[in-house]
Simulated assay, not measured.
Amino acid sequence: MDTPTIYDVSRLSGVSTATVSRTFTTPDRVRESTRRRVYAAAEALHYQPSAIARAMARQQTDKIAFLICKEGATILDEFYASICEGVMRRANGTNYQLLISTAEEWTRTAQSKQIEGVILAGNAQADLISEFQRQNIPVVLVNNRAAGFNLPCIVADEAGGVRQVVSHLISAGHQRIAMLMGRFSPYVTSARYNAFLSVMRENGLSVDESGALMCDRDIQSATEAALRLLSRPDRPSAVFAFNDVLAAGVMKAARRLGLRLPEDLAVVGFDDSSVCPMMEPELSSIHVDCRRMGELCMEHMAALLDGAQDVPRLTVVPVNLKIRASSRAAI
């Protein structure tokens, strides 16, 4: 029979290898219920604590990976960089090191990296999630929910944000409200699209196919789509854009057509990025507390590594609309 390894103890006890290590080296840092599970697994496997300690000295890394799962992403992406900042805030002062990368880059170089947990930010693919689970590595998702996986997920209140946008525009007198959708993850796209239709219908307003356009996520694609939308005889009086880059494209198209903002067209974005107060007029947008989302990621990950069984599977972070000049004037 093969000699049991540290990973056998980890699998049998249902905790990470980092937690197994702490249980035998610094047991005061591990909750009692977790210690009992680890001790029971080690006893069942006839594994000696001293052997575990030696194995962990050779193999333990105490590293957590933060991977941005977005096509063409870089670690400088403002939205995910802000989430990562929250993760780092919570990681500081702990024994964990944080590795930051994109999912694309990670898959090319991960053979040399040993990690205890991974935070997947954005549109993580099922095969990537499955691979980490196969290695018994705890996974936390942020800004995404993955069907078929029972994982802790931290998301912004997408539906609540859309409801705030539409309610604000209706209260300002708008009835012809269009939506410009970017090619985002299926989760984000579906959540915002369905919420938009729901709120519009609740207020007796309809959205035809030409009033909900899809485009790529860059400003050129957004501008071209907005030009088509705003050139219609029954053009909308307000546009809700899926993020601030798309909203900038709408504003650019409006100026090309000689429309005044916000007198002829109101525009609202999503994410409240750093460019919002730099635009003219300043852009109204849904503020997402990315740093709080990151803090929750690290809190949930630390709990998983400590063997907690009660980590929430869904945590929704509230959002709020920042009203600025691009949508403030009434019709």
Rank of each mutant, 00 (worst) to 15 (best):
G161V: 08
V166K: 03
Y187W: 11
R192A: 08
N243G: 12
I137Q: 09
L229H: 05
F184Q: 14
V139P: 06
R232V: 04
F149N: 05
R235F: 02
R201I: 01
M214R: 15
G148S: 10
R217Y: 10
V188F: 13
G160D: 06
G204C: 11
F132K: 03
R163Q: 14
S221N: 09
P138Q: 06
P138C: 06
S198V: 04
D234G: 04
A126C: 07
V162M: 10
Q220F: 15
G182W: 00
I137E: 08
A124G: 02
L197M: 12
F242H: 15
A226K: 03
I129G: 01
A126I: 03
Q133N: 10
R145V: 15
R201T: 07
P236N: 14
N143F: 07
V199C: 01
E209F: 00
A124I: 03
C215I: 00
S210M: 10
V239I: 12
R145Y: 12
I170A: 05
Q175K: 14
L227P: 02
P152T: 07
I177L: 07
V118R: 06
F242M: 15
Y193L: 12
D157V: 03
C215S: 09
S190K: 13
L120W: 08
F240Q: 09
M200E: 02
A222C: 01
H174K: 08
S198I: 03
A124K: 00
Q220V: 15
S190L: 12
S185V: 00
L128E: 04
H174R: 12
N143S: 13
S171A: 13
A238W: 10
C153R: 03
N136T: 14
S185E: 02
L120I: 05
S198L: 10
G173W: 09
L169I: 05
N123H: 11
A159R: 14
N243D: 15
D218G: 03
I129S: 00
V118P: 05
